[in-house]
């Protein structure tokens, strides 16, 4: 797997985060990639995994704390969530919209559908660790005030 593919396609995800956070949340997130010490994703985490298949296989991992997830989902819900399960549902939708935008960029740049997405899977827990063996990845970090998210975008060998 060419590291360039990971970096090139990673840039599409960066653009997708910038657009979607503005369009969906009306928040301009600061790009803190490379400044991991400035973001805080510890304690009880809520992570979303969306698989990528097709010409390139990989996955998006969207990491956040439960607090950041609640901030994002309450904006999407126009208020306090009615059910706890909505926290998961809405974060899955957020990740879906974000990755959908990125994959649209990627597919359109190739003028054909080269990557398909799987549905989101949302995990929460204490000491949550998510590992996808045998992939190369890039970390993108974003934050504003107490809202921090990290995207880990990884692709495996074709």
């Amino acid at each position: 797997m060419s590291e360039n593919i990971v970096e090139i396609y990673g840039e599409y995800f960066r653009r997708a985060v910038e657009e979607i956070s503005t369009e969906l949340l009306d928040i301009k997130l600061n790009d803190l990639s490379g400044k991991e010490d400035r973001i805080s994703i510890h304690g009880k985490k809520l992570d979303v995994i969306i698989g990528m298949t097709g010409d390139y296989k990989g996955r998006l991992l969207l990491e956040s704390t439960e607090e950041s997830a609640r901030t994002i989902t309450e904006i999407m819900n126009f208020g306090t969530l009615e059910r706890e399960s909505d926290l998961y549902l809405y974060m899955g939708e957020f990740a879906n919209i974000l990755s959908g935008r990125a994959i649209t960029f990627i597919n359109n740049s190739n003028q054909k559908k080269i990557i398909r997405l799987t549905p989101p899977a949302i995990f929460s827990g204490v000491d949550l660790e998510i590992t996808t063996p045998n992939i190369e990845f890039i970390n993108l970090c974003f934050g504003k005030d107490d809202l921090h998210i990290r995207l880990n975008i990884g692709f495996g060998g074709v």
């Binding site: 992570d47 995994i49 996955r59 995990f123 929460s124 827990g125 204490v126 063996p133």
Partner: peptide
């Protein structure tokens, strides 16, 4: 059917939602 690479999630007090 195309499969994504396997991802392993470990932790404590875990909840999972794999579909709406």
């Amino acid at each position: 059917i195309d499969l994504s690479p396997p991802t392993i999630a470990t932790g404590k007090n875990m909840y999972i939602m794999i579909s709406n």
